[in-house]
Design a protein around this nucleic acid. Structure first.
Lengths: 178, 178
DNA sequence: CGGCGATGCGTACACTCGTACACATGGGAT
DNA sequence: ATCCCATGTGTACGAGTGTACGCATCGCCG
């Protein structure tokens, strides 16, 4: 077969990996499944990413960037007049409004760091980055606690299959933000 | 080989599964690895647990029971005089004092519910049970928020590889408990 | 323009896995 | 005492996996 000149292949493989994780979970991620999704031969995925951990790391980093984008777009976060707890609760509402899919995907990548030390620095990047963003509206310790509570609330929704209760989230975030 | 009469084999297989997950993670869980750990033939594990999901469900349920035991033993939780936030922060301290191992194992099973609907009812059982326990000291909504925050704090410790800060946990739990 | 190294391609191998199945055994119901 | 079926045992098969390797191709640097 003719060889293709494809300078952005690496990026496309990462995108394919994210789609595969979204559709079949990390358990369904393999060099072959990614190769098929990205429409590249098997050898190409192993060439660009020596191990699956490497690929997952890249996928988590990209996922983080996507989320960071969303938070940056929310100008309300920068408005010192707005109620921080309400803004965050609203943000989570939007996050869940598109169905479980997206949140499930991003959390699966994030939680994968539990067992994969290679992902931990990337997970820490996300936490630190978000904390820094929130630090413009409150002190650093409070910022971290807000993130922890949001994580916990998302977890309860995702793990137990329950619904997201925005008023409840607003109330509890408010207790921390003061 | 002589057949062994072994009425508690099912239980021993569950224990073996928990040890395997602790040592190699859910990714390393297979009928064969469990069979080897429990010292039973392969066919025996497939006989007692038709699918790995079934085995994971049983493992998560047992893990929940172990944790519930710990919480019940903590009489301090029942003492209306004690400061709830301080008690919970202390409990988490004990939880982490034995190294990452135990928390990592239990959270891995718990978080597996994200992608395995079969585990979600069991995860919900745990949340509901713990919330009920805490409801003796506070209202139900606050109880759920305390659990969410504890989950989030544990997650930050486990995912980023950071250390557990008991004073910080106490402060933030206190803001929710009021 | 020449070549070389990065990139792409296809295949083969050894391994593990879930599943299925045929057969053995003996506890407990009848 | 007898028989049945829940339980236990061993093996085989096909599918999927990570990895390695040889060869092809061509952008780019000298």
């Amino acid at each position: 077969m003719a060889r293709r000149y494809d300078p952005e292949r690496r990026d496309r493989i990462i995108d394919a990996a994210i789609r595969v994780v979204g559709a079949r979970g990390i358990a369904g991620l393999s060099h072959r499944s990614v190769a098929a999704e990205a429409d590249v031969p098997l050898g190409s995925t192993t060439y660009h990413f020596a191990s699956l951990d490497e690929l997952l790391t890249a996928a988590l980093r990209r996922s983080n960037e996507n989320f960071a984008e969303v938070m940056r777009e929310s100008e309300a976060l920068a408005d010192p007049e707005a109620d921080l707890a309400e803004e965050l609760a609203g943000l989570l509402g939007e996050y869940f409004s598109g169905g479980r899919g997206r949140a499930e995907l991003e959390y699966e990548l994030y939680l994968a760091a539990l067992r994969r030390p290679a992902l931990r620095p990337v997970a820490a990047e996300w936490t630190d980055g978000t904390a820094e963003l929130l630090s413009r509206r409150t002190d650093p310790a409070t910022a971290r606690a807000l993130i922890a509570l949001m994580d916990g609330i998302c977890l309860q929704v995702l793990l137990t299959g329950g619904a997201y209760d925005e008023a409840y989230a607003r109330e509890m975030l408010g207790r921390i933000a003061g």
